[in-house]
Amino acid sequence: MESGETRYSESHEWIRAQNGAATVGITSYAAEQLGDVVFVELPRVGKRFAKGGQVAVVESVKAASEIYAPVDGEVTETNSALSAAPAKVNADPEGAGWFFRMKLMEGAQLGALMTKDQYTEFVKGL
């Protein structure tokens, strides 16, 4: 896969990797399903997790949802702007509404995630 390409998980996270580091957030589809986001509980920097592990919690006016790690990694940075402005998740979920950055442990895992086209198809089937 190309550097900088965005990949998608079945649990509606996106991940964009470049040079062994990656940014993670939730998809536009997920943000729309959640409705207005009011709180985001972000992980600690340095926290390690395995693919599928719970990394963050996003709470909307409707529901609390867990955010899972799309691949193995270690948190290097979190989007602290979200604590004051959680609405960024709704306004720009795949841009300014990113959740955290991580160091990748196993780059090959990315290839197993869906491409944008595959994810679009996947969402259509829901």
């Binding site: 409705g35 207005d36 006016v61 409707k62 609405a87």
Partner: peptide, 10 residues
């Protein structure tokens, strides 16, 4: 309707 395009908070 659960919400309209404005969203619950608005």
């Amino acid at each position: 309707p659960e919400q309209y395009p404005a969203g619950i908070i608005k």
